[in-house]
Design a protein around this nucleic acid. Structure first.
Length: 824
RNA sequence: GCGGGAGUGGCGGAAUUGGCAGACGCGCUGGAUUUAGGAUCCAGUGGGAGACCGUGGGGGUUCAAGUCCCUUCUCCCGCACCA
């Protein structure tokens, strides 16, 4: 055994060895219980960053731990490899996207391997390869065949910089999630998936996600945004047509003083055509539509509107109220029209004040009387209905359903549930994605590509121009095809799918990655799913995690798999920061994993990133902290080195009886086993797990200084130490394990069990408190009875001093912990 | 504005069920070793000379509060005209 810890030699050696032995290969159907440990697969940007290191270190500790605990562990890795950066590289550097992507994968895979991660590389998938996207296309067609994929013309979010449309979820504060460019609205014909059909289901099963952080569950709940209310039909006076509005407050319907349409509402144009309002209203609508999404959807934006010259009839009281158009009404939500009740809605109140529209109180608070002239803000709390005909006197909460049901009776409305969630726009006007497998025929319309013709291959020999247009439009061999229906000439769809589609089912493909006949074998998927532990960044709280849940429910409904939720437990790791902020090139505070691994080794990098903070919290990078972890591994190395070298210890006879020092070490050892097991397996607090291992090492150093040791105990402690360390620092543990003379891998050892009896201390320290404040300490026998403990502590000098001349009110004794004397 | 999370030594962080605040690591101080430095090993390290005081501030419950309740401040994250 070498005296020095030569990490680079050791790490290379064991990485090669593990690969040759195929140590991490798994197959299904083992008699062991399965455990599916999954980390979010990366986009192959070309280089690993610290966020990846953190993500994959966490996953690897869990996977290795579960493996040693006797589970059949599936721990795969792959590549989310479609996406825009590959195209940008092509435009900028003239490298074809496929080559750029595959080169990046190769490089990143090397880096992942250099971290010593326990992946079954035989299950590697890359979403950009035809053997994967064939099945992405097939799944799309399943959605299509079940009526869950459809094409419609609508106002969609367009990012001018990315030159493509975006899903609602990809618009952040009115700007493109990727490049921060303000999005524009465009009216385009696009493919959607009917995620709204699953809105209620997605919401209802959130409480079942027991192992998910509340934060993520709440975010999803808010995103789905269920609201209960009523749809109420007003009648347009001029045309007699019904104009439905959606409201959560049908109890305020008697307080309606105007109605507002969204600028995009088709009835606007219909009602102004040929009237004196035509020109000014058109101008107003145009102005609103020219506003950026950010300005338009901000709550701070001044509410502006305009009367459009028509009136509608309130179905409850037959009142005639004016019809307006205004910038604050969203066409996409509800019916695109709202009723204005200024007295009881803040926005309506502001609007009515601005345009001098009437305000009528229809809900009175219980303890005071509202006077319109005195109101400075809308009254939105609960109260009693007034000015509401036969509903007068009814508490408004009851009024909500009473009015809704009455409207239903008279045929002027119905109870209605609305969701904020919109259907998922999946078309992208980009090249580097999975082609949507549809062809357009003049005779037959949109026709799905037959399963046997899949995959619709992405042509690889393409030319990129910085026009923003998808090159697929310029490739006749791709574009022109024959109709699968009638055999006539047809055109292919040139849009590709949102890459979130590819990542919505990859965890299923890992269960059966090589299958050429199916997306995945049902039995294999049923065996491995669902994912027992999923680990990734919280930035995916909504998009990826919601889409994947939607896919799982749909695939279950298609009968392809038995489970309905993809991820049993979810761990969202915090960011890796440097100098208090996120690492970024522009700030110049990036620490590259490669650099750290070269300087200290992967084991040190892993250990530091797990030790520096609990996984959910942000982690501040510290070069000195890394140094400390490196020192610790050296300390472990020397401990084992000295042990192996010391012939006396190995020759020593086993002792008949353990001394106090022996028992202390044994208690420390078993306490460490317990702590590390719980910290990895139950609490997911790897930082305290590492600290427990450090304490064990400190204890072993002290033990080595003792005059006599128990050789059997020492050997057991050092063996166990290496097993406990193995999930965190796999290379050094393996090397030292073999240096101790073991023939098999440390990673295939059974995780040690702790002995409850060994944990029991013979002596404990108890505390003397006076009025709750610690005044003295005392070592006593651990099994001392309550009475004896109290007697002993009360007899202490400090106790006597404090009781002198005072009245003892009471004495609280907690055996094994403390005696608190309350004096007056 | 709404929702969520966090404020603990010089720093990262521990304290799992209300029971010894500051585990472990960094940094710092001292000692041993060494020609010397580095490395290593050992010891010390919240503040205060001390009685004592200490978990963002104020109040409360309790024999006992970092932990529970009320209130307030600061920071971070998510959503934000969804009728």
């Amino acid at each position: 055994m070498q005296e020095r810890y030569n990490f680079s030699e050791i790490e290379a050696k064991w990485q090669k060895e593990w690969e040759q032995e195929d140590l991490y290969k798994v197959t299904e159907g083992d008699e062991k219980e399965k455990y599916y440990c999954l980390e979010m697969f990366p986009y192959p940007s070309g280089n690993l960053h610290m966020g990846h290191v953190r993500n994959y270190s966490i996953g690897d500790v869990l996977a290795r731990y579960k493996h040693m605990k006797g589970y059949n562990v599936l721990h795969p890795m792959g590549w989310d490899s479609f996406g825009l950066p590959a195209e940008n590289a092509a435009i900028k550097h003239g490298i074809p996207p496929a080559k750029w992507t595959l080169d990046n994968i190769e490089n990143m895979k090397k880096q992942l391997i250099s971290m010593g991660l326990s992946y079954d590389w035989g299950r590697e998938v890359a979403t950009c390869l035809p053997d994967y996207y064939k099945w992405t296309q097939w799944i799309f067609l399943q959605f299509y065949k079940h009526g869950l994929a459809y094409k419609k013309k609508s106002y969609v979010n367009w990012c001018p910089d990315c030159a493509t449309v975006l899903a609602n979820e990809q618009v952040v504060n009115g700007a493109c999630e990727r490049c921060d460019t303000p999005v524009e609205k465009k009216s385009l014909e696009q493919w959607f998936l009917r995620i709204t059909d699953y809105a209620q289901d997605l919401l209802d099963s959130i409480p079942d996600l027991k192992g998910w952080p509340d934060k993520v569950k709440i975010m999803q709940e808010n995103w789905i945004g269920r609201s209960e209310g009523a749809e109420i039909s007003f009648t347009v006076e001029k045309t007699g047509k019904k104009l439905p509005v959606y409201t959560t407050r049908p109890d305020t319907t008697f307080g309606v003083s105007y109605l507002v349409l969204a600028p995009e509402h088709p009835m606007v144009e219909e009602l102004i055509a040929g009237t004196e309002y035509e020109e000014p209203v058109r101008k107003f609508v145009r102005n609103v539509q020219q506003m950026s999404e950010i300005a338009r959807t901000s709550a701070e934006t001044e509410k502006e509107g305009m009367f459009i010259g028509s009136y509608v009839i309130n179905p409850l009281n037959q009142e005639k109220v004016p019809l307006w158009v205004a910038n604050y009404v969203l066409y996409e939500y509800g019916t695109g029209a709202v009723m204005g009740v200024p007295a009881h809605d803040e926005r309506d109140f502001m609007f009515a004040k601005k345009y001098d529209l009437p305000i009528r109180v229809v809900i009175q608070p219980k303890d005071q009387e509202l006077k319109v002239e005195e109101m400075t803000t809308a009254f939105v709390e609960d109260g009693v209905m007034v000015n509401s005909g036969k509903f007068d006197g009814l508490p408004n909460q009851e009024g909500i359903s009473a009015v809704a049901h009455y409207l239903e009776e008279i045929g002027a409305g119905n109870v209605k549930v609305n969701f904020r969630l919109r259907d998922w726009l999946i078309s992208r006007q980009r090249y580097w994605g999975a082609p949507i497998p549809i062809v357009y025929c003049d005779k037959c319309g949109a026709v799905p590509v037959p399963d046997e013709d899949l995959p619709v291959r992405l042509p690889l020999d393409v030319e990129f121009r910085p026009t923003g247009e998808s090159p697929l439009n310029n490739i006749p061999e791709f574009l022109n095809t024959t109709c699968p229906c009638c055999g006539g000439p047809a055109r292919r769809e040139t849009d590709t799918m949102d890459t979130f589609i590819c990542s919505s089912w990859y965890f299923l493909r890992y269960a059966d990655p090589k299958n050429a006949e199916e997306a995945f074998n049902k039995e294999k998927a049923n065996y491995w799913m669902n994912v027992d532990q999923y680990i990734g960044g919280v930035e995916h709280a909504i998009m990826h995690l919601l889409y994947a849940r939607f896919f799982m429910k749909a695939l279950n409904d298609f009968g392809l798999v038995d489970v309905r939720e993809p991820f049993q437990r979810l761990l969202t790791q915090g960011m890796v920061l440097k100098d208090g902020t996120k690492m970024s090139k522009s700030k110049g505070n990036v620490v590259s994993p490669e650099e750290i691994i070269n300087k200290y080794g992967a084991d040190t990098a892993r250990l530091f990133i797990l030790f520096a903070a609990p996984p959910e919290r942000d982690l501040e990078w510290s070069d000195q902290g890394v140094e400390g972890c490196y020192r610790f591994l050296n300390r472990v190395w020397r401990l084992v080195y000295n042990y192996v070298k010391d012939e006396n210890i190995k020759k020593a006879e086993a002792k008949a009886e353990l001394t106090k020092d022996d028992k202390d070490l044994r208690r420390l050892l078993h306490g460490s086993i317990k702590k590390v097991s719980e910290d990895i397996g139950e609490r997911f607090t790897f930082n305290t797990g590492v600290s427990a291992i450090m304490e064990l090492v400190n204890g072993l150093y002290h033990y080595r200084d003792k005059a006599e040791q128990d050789p059997a105990l020492l050997k057991d402690a050092i063996d166990s130490l290496l097993i406990l360390l193995a999930p965190f620092a796999p290379h050094i543990s393996e090397e030292l394990w073999h240096a101790l003379g073991h023939q098999t891998s440390v990673h295939t050892q059974a995780w040690p069990e702790y002995d409850e009896e060994a944990l029991v201390a013979e002596e404990v320290e108890v505390v003397l408190q006076i009025n709750g404040k610690v005044r003295d300490r005392l070592k006593v026998a651990a099994n001392l009875s309550r009475e004896e403990l109290e007697k002993t502590v009360l007899a202490m000098e400090k106790a006597q001093q404090n009781m002198q001349g005072k009245q003892v009110v009471k004495v609280i004794t907690v055996p094994g912990k403390l005696v608190n004397i309350v004096v007056k």
